[in-house]
Structures are given as structure tokens and as C-alpha cells.
């Protein structure tokens, strides 16, 4: 297995684990990712913090991104 394939497999394994656990929690009506994130951003201060993080992500990717694209 090439190094690249190994790295990608790692991401895939983590994503698969998340999907499996999400399915389990969804079936059991337990702590789904949505509920976990909702708890994480509960409260005005936390919400503002995550909002700034989300806005920065968009700025970083699209307004200051270096990907090549038509335009």
C-alpha cells in the first residue's frame, strides 16, 4: 500500500467510524453528532466563537484560497 493510499485510508477509517457511531446513536436516540454539536455551541459566547470560526473558514478557503479555478 502506497503512503498516499495509507493516508487516505486513515481519513476514510475515521469518517467511517463517525458514520457508524452516528448511526448507532441515531437508532438508540442517544447523543447524535447534531445534539453533541448543539450542546457544544450552546450559549451566546460559544456560539459567537464558533460563528467566527465558521466565517474564518469561508474567508480562508474562498476569499484567500489559492486553488486554481476558472474566472
Amino acid at each position: 500500500m502506497s503512503q498516499r493510499a495509507l493516508t487516505l485510508a486513515g481519513y476514510a477509517a475515521i469518517a467511517s467510524g463517525a458514520v457508524v457511531y452516528q448511526s448507532v446513536t441515531w437508532v438508540r436516540h442517544s447523543l447524535t453528532l447534531g445534539r453533541f454539536v448543539r450542546w457544544l455551541i450552546w450559549g451566546r459566547a460559544r456560539r459567537v466563537l464558533f460563528l467566527l470560526g465558521w466565517a474564518w473558514l469561508g474567508w480562508h478557503l474562498f476569499a484567500r484560497g489559492n486553488a486554481t479555478f476558472p474566472g
Binding site: 455551541i41 464558533f50 460563528l51 465558521w54 466565517a55 473558514l57 469561508g58 478557503l61 474562498f62
Partner: peptide
């Protein structure tokens, strides 16, 4: 990706 970013913000906040 831009749409996903917008959806993420909308869904979260």
C-alpha cells in the same frame, strides 16, 4: 464547497 460551507453555517447557527 461554497454551498457546503453555507449549509454548515445555516444548519449550525
Amino acid at each position: 464547497l461554497f454551498a457546503i460551507w453555507l449549509l454548515l453555517g445555516w444548519g449550525l447557527f
